[in-house]
Each structure stands twice: as C-alpha cells, then as structure tokens.
Computed example of a mutant assay.
Amino acid sequence: MKNVDSTPAYLSNTWLQTYYLLRFAVSVVWIILAVVLGRHNPAIGATLLVAYPLWDALANYLDARKSGGLGSNPPQLLNVIVSVFVGIAIGWSLTFGMAAAIKVFGTWAIVAGLLQLAVAVRRWKTAGGQWAMFLSGAQSAAAGAFFFKQAGSGIPLDVTTVAPYAGFGAVYFAIAAIWLTVRNARQRSRALAR
C-alpha cells in the first residue's frame, strides 16, 4: 500500500508563502540600508555587499531545510555553497576596489540566477508563483552580465550599483508571495466548501 501525503496543497505551500514574504522584506530593508547608509559610508556599503550573498545562502538553507533537506534539493545546496564562497570572495575583492567586487557580485548573480531557475523548474508542478521565480532567475543572470559591463565602464560604483538588482528581486518575491496567498486562499475555500 502506498503512503499518500494527504496534506492539502494550501498547507504544504504555507512555508513557501512565508519564505517569499521574508525574502521580500529583507530585500527592502537591504535596499534602504544601501541607499541611506551604504552609499555614504564605504565600510557599511562593503558590509552590505558581502552580506547580500551570505543572506541568500542562509535563505536557501532555510528553504531547503523546510523542503526536504539539502540532499533533496541539489540546486539549493549548490547555491548555499556558492553564495558563502562568493560572500567571502567579495570581501577579498574589495581590497582591489569596488569594480572587482562588482565583477564578483556579477558572477554570483549569473550563477545564483541559473540555480534559481533550476529550483523554479523543480517546483513548477507543486507550488504556485514559480513563473515569477523563473523570471527572477533569468533577470538575475542577465543582471550579472550587466554588472560586468558597469564594472568595466569607469563609472563611479558603490553598493547602490546593485540596489536595482535587489529591487527587482524583491518585486519577484512579492509577486510569488501574493500569487501563493491567493492560490492558497482559493484552495482553502474549496476544501472548506466540500
């Protein structure tokens, strides 16, 4: 006899809904700190630049843990490893200047975007809002290439160079959270109507 999971879809997606809202909130706070403090204080800006991929590593770890563990989620496991490594690499690259750090950040944005695409594809049939995560991953990869262009352009760079990237990410996480909220509410209503 097969063991069938009888958990309603809206309950199994509750974590994902909360996760996307958390990602949105942290992104908004990061952007505010970058614009208000980081652009005027290089030490705070550097700290925020290093913190961004480290937060991504933690967020992916938390999500994977709630979604079957890192062993069941290879793209998230790889994202955790890469993001921790990149956080350290950004700290080191800052000793060479902001352009070097933006190039490292750009490399990470490409890799993290591709990994986010992989996670969205894996969740496509089981969770709502994955089209937003798919777009977010694609935009992240494209933004990474744009960071390389900016880093080589000679324009002044600081932590706010990546603030629009964080802003787009926040929007995608908000869309996914709203999508899941509406979907879960509909599924809950249908379940209660039976």
Rank of each mutant, 00 (worst) to 15 (best):
G169L: 13
F85Y: 12
V162N: 04
P74C: 05
L58P: 01
A170P: 11
S140L: 05
S83N: 11
L62M: 14
I81K: 03
A120T: 03
I90T: 05
A109M: 11
P53A: 08
S67M: 11
A141Y: 05
A89L: 15
F147T: 01
I155Q: 15
A145I: 15
V104F: 07
V171R: 02
Y172V: 02
G97E: 09
D158H: 08
G91T: 06
A166L: 12
Y61L: 15
G152E: 09
L77V: 00
K149F: 10
W55S: 05
I81V: 15
A59W: 04
G87E: 06
G69I: 06
V159K: 07
V84M: 12
A132D: 04
S72N: 13
G129R: 04
K66I: 00
A143N: 09
F146M: 06
A59H: 03
G154D: 07
S136F: 12
L157N: 12
I110K: 01
A132Q: 10
L78H: 06
D63T: 09
P74V: 05
N79Q: 13
W108T: 01
D158K: 04
F146N: 00
P164G: 08
W55G: 07
A170K: 09
L114D: 01
F96Y: 13
T126G: 13
R123Q: 09
A138W: 08
A145C: 07
L78W: 13
V111K: 08
K149S: 07
A101G: 13
W124P: 00
S83H: 08
A101W: 08
P75E: 05
S93P: 06
D158V: 04
A112R: 09
L135R: 02
Y52L: 14
D63L: 10
V80T: 06
F85C: 14
K103W: 12
L157S: 13
T107L: 15
Q139R: 02
V159I: 15
G113K: 08
L58H: 03
T95C: 00
A109I: 07
V80F: 14
I102Q: 02
V171D: 03
A174I: 12
I110A: 08
G154T: 06
S140C: 09
G106M: 10
V82G: 01
P74W: 07
F146T: 00
F85S: 14
R122G: 02
L70S: 06
V162P: 00
L115V: 05
D158Y: 05
M98P: 01
I88V: 15
W108Y: 15
I88T: 04
D63N: 14
G144V: 04
P53E: 11
G167R: 07
L78A: 13
A142N: 02
K66H: 14
A138N: 02
D63H: 12
D63C: 12
A142K: 03
